Amino acid sequence: MMDQLESRFKEVFNNLYEHIYFAPGRVNLIGEHTDYNGGNVFPCAIDIGTYLVIRKRKDRKLCFYSDNFSKLNIIELNLDDLEYNEDHNWANYPKGIFKMLKNQDMNTGFDLFYYGNIPNGAGLSSSASIEVVTALMLNDVFELKYDIIDLVKICQKTENEYIGVNCGIMDQFAIGMGKDDHAILLDTNTLKYDYAPLKLGKHKLVVTNTNKKRGLADSKYNERREECEQALSIIQEYIDVNTLGDLTAEQFESVKCHINDNLLVKRSRHAVYENIRTKKAKAALELGDLDVFGNLMNESHVSLRDDYDVTGVELDTLVKLALQQDGVIGSRMTGAGFGGCTISIVKEDLIDTFRQNVEKKYTEIIGYEPTFYIVNVGAGARKLK
């Protein structure tokens, strides 16, 4: 990989590279749409992600190139021109990081070569991976002395204020703080976190992409957040809490009668009980009980389908088909939903059969094929060379 990246950088920029950085993608195992509700999430970093190869320039030009969007060619701009530009497409993510981190010491331009092996738009956080790898690079090159959690916060702020997606902090945190063979239980309200061993034994994580086209900024993501905020404001009239993530099951059941809109009841119920599932998931993994963990994944998907309404026929079909296969412990959508991917725990020696059966049936029902990725639990963002 290093040799290929070096070679491609030289082809594109007709020069030698100086440094290479990497930021992984992430899958969320339990705890979907809880992060912006002040609850827990339970993601892990994976061993596919975004590579960034750079060389400083002697002028103030920024030259962005991605091997994943080669038809766009090199996007050139000046350090003094970092405003969002819809025509710049993917390059707005690293541009936003430059804008957020820019200070008086950043007077040099860059040639920047990005290569990602995360499927774009699949819900594995390719955009957050681009943000984190860019922030990591700038922090290193200019010796900005931010710790990784500070960089994670800056990346979330970029997504919220520059890109315009009102996301929580889970994606950037998992990408920045990932650890080999561990998941992260993160309290998004306090940023307190604990690692949990993710020992799958004879099983593997299989990510299945619906291949449905979706755009997170165009989806109903922000609408769901607003609905939860409406429910919270009603609950706060009766219980002293700051977020839905603060509620116990008993508290929610006692107060839900005051929420007159059944849609808001469903949205807030998902946020409360999904948060509880994250704690149960950590406990199950610490005991090495994959069966309990798998059941929690299944329950999570049902809640996301019935109460949060963020799945859709493609994701529901993949999960239903997965759970019909031998050797599958659990399966659920992962990411924001509205398309994207599922995550399943599958016995390693049955993965080929799993893929064949699910692909055949899904294609018959949906009309096009899914894509499968067997991923390992990996470490967080880091400098490679």
Rank of each mutant, 00 (worst) to 15 (best):
T342N: 05
S254P: 06
G380M: 03
I374G: 06
K192E: 12
G327Q: 06
H203T: 08
Y362I: 08
D326R: 13
Y51N: 09
Y93R: 10
F64C: 08
L323S: 10
T278E: 05
S233L: 14
C63P: 03
L186Q: 02
D289T: 05
E253V: 06
Y17P: 11
L263R: 05
D35T: 05
A196Y: 01
N68P: 03
K71L: 14
E227H: 12
M2S: 06
D171S: 03
V41G: 11
S268H: 03
A231I: 01
N295G: 08
N107S: 10
E237C: 15
A183I: 14
T188G: 05
Q4G: 13
Q230W: 02
S303K: 11
T50P: 00
L151Y: 01
I351S: 13
L290A: 03
I74V: 15
G378K: 01
Y373E: 03
I175R: 00
V265D: 00
Q172N: 12
L247T: 09
G215A: 11
D171V: 00
K385T: 14
D289R: 03
K102C: 05
I154R: 04
K204V: 15
T243H: 12
Y21H: 07
V302L: 10
C167K: 06
V241N: 02
N92E: 03
K266P: 09
R332F: 12
K157P: 01
D181F: 15
V375I: 14
V272W: 07
L16H: 13
Y93V: 06
D59C: 06
F372S: 09
F9S: 02
A23I: 06
D291V: 10
D35F: 03
D240S: 07
V207P: 03
V241G: 01
G215V: 08
R355K: 15
G31Q: 07
V319C: 10
G25H: 02
D80I: 08
P43I: 05
E286Y: 10
